[in-house]
Structures are given as C-alpha cells and as structure tokens.
Design a binder for these strands. Structure first.
Lengths: 255, 255
DNA sequence: TGAAATCAATTCATCTGATAAATCTGATGA
DNA sequence: TCATCAGATTTATCAGATGAATTGATTTCA
C-alpha cells in the first residue's frame, strides 16, 4: 500500500505564525506543528518515530513537503533520519535550543517559571562579558547604536514606542558591539526572553523592571571604555531582575 | 529552457566529511559545499543569489536534492528563499554561528587568530556562569560525570586516550550539570574550540595548555558546592589560556 | 542446537516530469 | 509620469518511479 499519501485533508493552512500578512507555506506549517510537538515532549526523546508516509498522510501533503520539513527539523538538531529506520528524536543535548524557531516552539510549551529563570541565567553568563568586550573594543558607530536604542527606551517609557523592542534593541546592540560573531546568535534568546518576561514581571511588580537607570549605567560604562564597570553594571542589572523573578515566583506560586 | 538540470556531472560524491566509513548523501554534499562557500565569503552577504536551476545544474543533482540542501541552509539562518526571487544570503547577524555545521564550515575558512580568540571570549562568558550553576545545583550524578571526565584527562596526559576528547567531555559535563537547557548547545562550540586550539597551543608552547591542575581546581570547587570559587577557577583557567594565546599570536605573527 | 550467511520486504534517497502560485517585466493607457 | 494588467520566469507543491540501505526471517553449515 503506497498510495496512502495525499488524502483529502488540506485543512491546516494558516494557524498564525506571526502578526500580519505573512502567508505560510505547506512545508513551514508541517515544520512548525511537528516542532511544537517535539519541543512539547509529545514524542519520546530518545526513541524511534516519524515515518515519511505517516507525515504526508497526516497533513495531506506530498512527500516533497514532508521531507523538506523533516530536513529542517534535522538541521536544528531535533531529528536524525537514517535510510530505513525513519526519523528518530535525538537526545536533548543535541537540540539547538538557541535557534530562534526552537526557542519559539519551546516557549509554546515550557513551564513559565523554568523558562524565564533559565533564560536569565544564560544571559547573566554571556551578556556581562559582552558588555565588557563592547567597552574595551570601543567602536564609535556601534556604541552610537547602543545609545540610540537607549534613547528609544527612554521614549518608550513615556509611551512613545514599544518598550520590549527597544529594550531588545539595546541588548542586541551590545552584542553587535563586541565584534565577536559568536555573540550574534544570542540575540534571538534575548528577544524571546524579553517578549516573555517583560509582561510577566510587569504583571508581578506593577511597573516595568527593565530599569532605565540600570541600562543608563551600562551605556555610560561602555561609552567610557571601562570594561570592568560595564561588566558589573550589566551583572547588577540582570541579577537584580533574576533575584526579583525568583522570589516573586516563589511567592505567587507560578509553576 | 527547463531541461538544463541533470547534466552528466556526478563527479562530486565523497570528498571526505569525517574520518571513517561515513558515506555522505547527495543532499549533504551539496549542503556542505555551499555551506563552506557561504561561510568562506564567496557570496556577497546581503545580495541576491543561488537559483534552484543553477544548483542542480552545477552538482548534476535533481531538484529534490538541491531544494533540500537549500532548506537546510535556510534552517541554519544562512539563506532566505522567496517564491520567485531565489535564495538570498541573509545578513550576518542572522547566521546561526553556534550551530555545529556552521561552526565547521567557518573553521574551514576563518582566520585562525580571530577564530581562536573569539571562541575563547565567548567561552569566558558562559562557562564561568555554568561552573557556578553546576556548583550551586550540586546534583551528585552529574558532578560524578565531571569527575569521570577529569580522570580521563589525567589518563590522557600520560598517553592513555585522546586529550582533546576528554577535555571536551569535562567542559560538556559542566554544561550538563547546570540543569539549564540553554547551555547545552554550546558544547559544539567547546568541541570546535578545543579541536582547533589544543594543537595550536601545543605547537606554540611545546606542551599541553589545558592544565590538569586548573581543571582540578574547577572540579573541587564544584564538588564542594562553592559557586563563587567554581566561577573564579573557571575564569582563571580560561583567561590564562586567552592571555597566552593573545601574546603568543602577537609574537609569532600568526594571522 | 547455535551461529553465520542469504534473501525478501520495507522504507528512505533520489530522479523525473507536471501543475499551481507568486513575482518580475514590460507594454498599455489615462 | 504613473497606475494597471498580461506574459514570462521561477519557486512551491504534487505525483509516480527507480535505486539503495536496512531489517528480519529464512536457510545453511558446523
């Protein structure tokens, strides 16, 4: 029985990937749905799974679309396909958790408490060093971008613009100012962290935690070319947020 | 003219991806070659490029294989394909530099000096925090894995086993002991860094730099559950290597 | 009986060709 | 000059066929 593919399903198109008019392809639909399911733990992390036939049968798609979706998931470290054995879920340690798509899929199912805290722990690691590098490198135009983002944050704090986006832009500008390629991919993590934690912390504390003052200290230290001070300012800012989230989460019992 | 595909090329199979018997698929061949070329800067980072037809013509492959290769490269953030515009190289900031494949492609063309130093800078950021988290979390079995890797390093130092692999295993065990998923993908970076820098530093200094003593300090601090000491021990170890590489590179004039 | 070799069935990998959808180009007209 | 629309080009998707690799059962030999 080979003709089980291409049944009359076709009912999936458009579940909403982002805001706006972005029409999604069949391949992307399959990728996103399977990605969310894998990250959500629907499939046993170490065992066998996912036949080519099953996928195109389930989504009413052609083998091309199914195969391309599987290739994408494999490229992100989630699957390993072998000629006759089908696609197996790879061990968790091989998953590319820093990939923007993977982060998005994880966000859809992760426990909020763990998710926010884990993100902050990682940020605490590399963002302090990034601030120090940005300060010691001292590239004028890239530091100007940091200041620009800071001004956007100030404007956003008085209602002129999106506070999350300008906050993210600030931190991304710091990463870019390191002049180190390997810091760049971490901006996706910051984006996700802020989109997720800013509303939460606002709800918890009644006001924005992304302190303008704290960001200002980081900016001034970088502009002064003082690596140690920049590192400390960034550390103070993030560990303060982390501490507040930790205690608040314990108090309110958010899972 | 649509029939330009599938000419009589077929001359690519097997260029040697890894040591051993691992036979590579057509799709993987195309992916690896294009990946290396992109990371090597052969294609203008921001501009238009790569038609479906061109690819299958160049490699003598079918559109299926060409398309799947492009999907993989897109999944790693290198390309963006649009219905009629072909595949465009995305801006550098979207590239997933922490992906194992991307790291490998970059290694093939990167300037050794920048490559080693950039890797160490990033490690200095997150590995210190990872050591601290591992210490404060204090999970017995995961710390046992760190000690195990340390013993393997000791054995390797007297000729019993691979010094690079055991060193990498040590650092990966620390990442795993954080209990934080987002540290896991960074093990690829450590692997690449060690494979690349250990031979280099050995050649520069005449002896292994991956100090057994320094690793022992990290291990003992983690076993003692002393987060601050673990952070400092890791920082001392990495910054020592970074400093020595920096000066050695300046002296020898390695580009 | 047990172990190794063999063979058939199943599934992934690849190729080929065709149709649909999206976009660019240039011609047309106000 | 600019907006609009038809034609051409290219990607997206579908469909079917063949090749290659692995699994598992069967067979053969010690």
């Amino acid at each position: 029985m080979a003709g089980a593919c291409n049944t009359v399903v076709k009912t999936l198109n458009w579940a909403g990937t982002m805001a706006g008019n972005q029409t999604s392809s069949v391949t992307d639909e399959i990728t996103n749905i399977l990605g969310r399911e894998i990250l959500g733990g629907l499939f046993p992390p170490g065992a066998t799974l996912l036949g080519e036939e099953e996928i195109c049968a389930r989504f009413g798609a052609s083998r091309s679309a199914a195969r391309e979706a599987v290739k994408i998931l494999s490229a992100k470290g989630l699957l390993l396909t072998r000629p006759r054995r089908g696609s197996r879920i790879r061990p968790l340690k091989d998953w590319n958790f820093l990939d923007p798509s993977v982060l998005g899929w994880l966000r859809a199912s992760a426990t909020p408490r763990d998710f926010i805290i884990e993100l902050l722990e990682v940020r605490l690691g590399f963002e302090c060093e990034a601030a120090a590098l940005a300060a010691s490198r001292n590239k004028a135009d890239e530091i100007a971008a940091i200041r620009e983002a800071f001004e956007a944050m100030r404007a956003a704090s008085s209602g002129q613009g999106d506070p999350v986006l300008s906050d993210a832009a600030f931190h991304e500008a710091v990463l870019a100012a390191t002049g180190n390629r390997f810091f760049l991919p971490l901006s996706a993590l910051i984006h996700t962290a802020l989109q997720y934690s800013v509303p939460t912390t606002n709800a918890l504390f009644g006001h924005p935690v992304g302190d303008l003052d704290a960001h200002g200290k980081v900016l001034r230290a970088i502009e002064a070319g003082d690596a140690a001070r920049a590192r400390k300012a960034m550390h103070d800012m993030l560990s303060e947020v982390l501490a507040r989230v930790r205690t608040a989460v314990e108090l309110t019992g958010v899972t």
